[in-house]
Nucleic acid binder design. Structure first.
Lengths: 225, 225
DNA sequence: ACGTAACCTGAATGTTTACTCATAATAGGT
DNA sequence: ACCTATTATGAGTAAACATTCAGGTTACGT
């Protein structure tokens, strides 16, 4: 959702330690409130209430409700990006096999979404975001796809010629399915471990699949040289 | 989202032809309005406006805004179910191969979501649904998983022992990814055809994969240096 | 200890919303 | 042509909401 202009920067940035803590409280409260009520029903008064501050204080640091959502989303983008790079670092350093790498990736993303499974979706899909933020979300995902593609290049069993497209599909699949699982864990047929294994299996099968042949014996447990 | 009680049935059901048409107009308008504005910002007045009827007329047939959403969702569930069964019918009758079957399935689901890509998500995730409807959505998905599993049993190259779990993962993957693609087609690296092919490839690879291990440790030490 | 900038308060404001109701128009049977 | 159930109207109502503001309280430099 993209929509019209609105103040996003606070008139007064927090200066003292007290007010920095207040801003953190507000953001934490907003995350909780949006998570449980959605964007529209997550009222500013409820947020202020839960944060233990008055509504006036909230508007001292955030010029609008939308600004709070944007701040939360920007924070989430940075977290995800950091996590992805940590993962790549580990994989390169410890020379895990493709299967282990995928398993680790899925596990990490599932963990990320387990805390507040709905928040990300609410911020991206229910909130009227300014164009700038919408672009940032897109770019973050494309960067992720490139990063994953870069890692996949290290594995010889990955035979895709269009690595970036494969990376994009991997990222989107993991993003969607872990999100879904985290949001409704008790409505699933599989246990958490089973889910991670199945998803990693699917990705491994896809990535090490050589197209023309009908069925193919995988090279199990293969490792990078 | 699940929430408190509210009237869902109209006091007066439509009797004459005129009013049946009106009810259809209202539902069509509601689909459009929810699609573009989301649930909360999709106001009943806007819906009545777009339907070309007065707000009073709308409340003659739908006792609440929520009732409109529920009606739309129920209609969607029925459509999806019908489509799935048609697909299974075709596959069984024409004895397509696994690859062709998956290709067809993905294509059909992508088509289903191309019309109003956001509507389904808005109804399920943004709308406070009564428990009954929420259950119906879940059941529909589990039924779909069973149906797919039944079809997969016909293909010898599918080696999964837990067919229903595999079916569930297939359904969820297709649901999530086609939805995503339909909602943001111009933000994708791949063309529509390419996307369908890649997704079908991934599913085929997963389903015909003979697994090297039962399970796997996520931690380091899985590969000798 | 004092002054002032930073910080906090919450009642008040104007807008938006779902929903009601008294009344008017219309269709279809007789 | 007439009668009545059905269908349509839209101004009006109460509640909920984001945001403002005038006036308090607290921390910090000096």
């Amino acid at each position: 959702m993209t929509a019209r202009k609105q103040r996003l920067e606070p008139i007064k940035p927090p200066v003292q330690r007290r007010s920095k803590a207040t801003v953190d409280e507000i953001l934490a409260a907003a995350a909780q409130v949006f998570e449980t009520h959605g964007y529209a029903a997550g009222t500013t008064n409820r947020i202020a209430d839960r944060a233990g501050v008055s509504i006036g204080t909230l508007y001292q640091y955030f010029p609008s409700k939308e600004a709070i959502a944007v701040a939360l989303l920007e924070r989430h983008i940075i977290d995800t990006d950091r996590r992805l790079h940590e993962w790549v670092g580990h994989m390169v350093a410890e020379r895990h096999g493709l299967r282990a790498a995928l398993h680790d990736y899925v596990t990490g993303m599932l963990e990320m979404h387990s805390g507040r499974p709905r928040l990300q979706h609410i911020l991206i899909e229910e909130t009227p975001l300014p164009e700038r933020v919408h672009k940032a979300v897109l770019e973050a995902e494309q960067t992720a796809a490139k990063t994953v593609a870069g890692l996949l290049r290290l594995y010889p069993e990955v035979r895709h010629t269009q690595l970036e497209q494969a990376g994009s599909l991997v990222v989107q699949t993991v993003e969607s399915l872990t999100h879904r699982f985290a949001a409704h864990p008790d409505e699933q047929l599989m246990s958490r471990e089973r889910f991670i294994n199945e998803l990693a299996t699917m990705l491994e099968a896809y990535l090490s699949y050589s197209r023309p042949h009908k069925s193919r014996q995988p090279s199990p447990g293969s490792c990078p040289p």
